[in-house]
């Protein structure tokens, strides 16, 4: 899959070199990637019986009920009905974790419950089980507005994410903002450049033929500009997520979304 992004690289260098700061994305002009998709793909996302992301949500629902680990307790054993206990949770992640002294994303938070509360084997980032649990938990916030916590302890991390977003990286020397703020809505090869709102994760991407996390998406963009991507779970990816979530505050959660 990385191959496809790499193939785009020479093309986009040419496209972007000609473009100097078109107006930055205005607050009023915010659009989810959903709004930029074809009617067919939107229909696929809207119908739970044609949205393959629902397979992971259903798997997550099963895992939620299954006792695991040395403690032999299911997620449901402590958290009960996810429809109530997990409603709105994904909309306010990443959140500050006092024990770690830094922000934690939803998948990291779930892993933590899994190892510390269930005393079970850790789930690898991007494993089907962790994606399924994350999708199931995030699905409980579908339709709710993204609601980043005002916690002042998050501020320095969010600022780091914002700075990274503006920093040119990779052999193509492009910042996230070069594409997503200054060229959104334009085409890059076969793709429409979205505004990079993290509204639908984990989501089903047709190119992946599978569900994937926001971190996978961010790593794809980094590989696309020929930068060395940060590792899954790296603090920089969580800082970027913090910034992206604050930029998307108030937009509706779509998990599990579909993207091309």
């Amino acid at each position: 899959m990385a191959g496809r992004s790499l193939a785009l690289a020479p093309l986009l260098a040419a496209v972007l070199a000609t473009t100097v700061a078109v107006a930055d994305t205005l607050e009023a002009d915010r659009r989810s990637g959903y709004d930029l998709m074809s009617p067919e793909l939107r229909a696929m996302q809207d119908d739970d019986l044609s949205n393959p992301g629902m397979f992971w949500v259903l798997d997550g629902e099963r895992l939620w009920q299954e006792p695991a680990g040395a403690a032999g307790i299911a997620c449901a054993g402590c958290h009960g009905d996810a429809q109530e206990s997990m409603r709105g949770v994904a909309a306010r992640y990443p959140a500050f974790d006092p024990a770690l002294g830094r922000p934690q994303d939803l998948a990291g938070r779930i892993s933590q419950c899994r190892t510390e509360r269930q005393e079970a084997e850790p789930l690898a980032r991007e494993s089907d089980a962790l994606l399924a649990l994350s999708a199931f938990v995030a699905h409980q916030s579908r339709g709710l507005p993204i609601d980043p916590p005002g916690d002042p302890r998050l501020q320095p991390f969010r600022a780091k994410g914002a700075a990274l977003y503006q920093t040119p990286i990779g052999q193509l020397d492009l910042a996230c903002a070069s594409c997503h703020d200054r060229n959104w809505g334009r085409r890059l090869g076969g793709s429409t450049i979205p505004q990079a709102h993290p509204t639908g994760y984990p989501l089903y991407r047709l190119e992946w033929q599978a569900l994937g996390s926001l971190q996978r998406r961010l790593r794809n963009c980094m590989i696309g500009v020929r930068a060395t991507p940060f590792d899954f779970g790296a603090p920089e990816l969580i800082e970027l997520e913090l910034y992206l979530m604050s930029r998307a505050a108030g937009m509706a959660v779509e998990t599990p979304a579909i993207r091309p």
Binding site: D47, D48, L49, S50, M54, F55, L58, D59
Partner: peptide, 8 residues
Amino acid sequence: MRTLINVP
């Protein structure tokens, strides 16, 4: 069962 079926 990993299937999603839509029949009226």
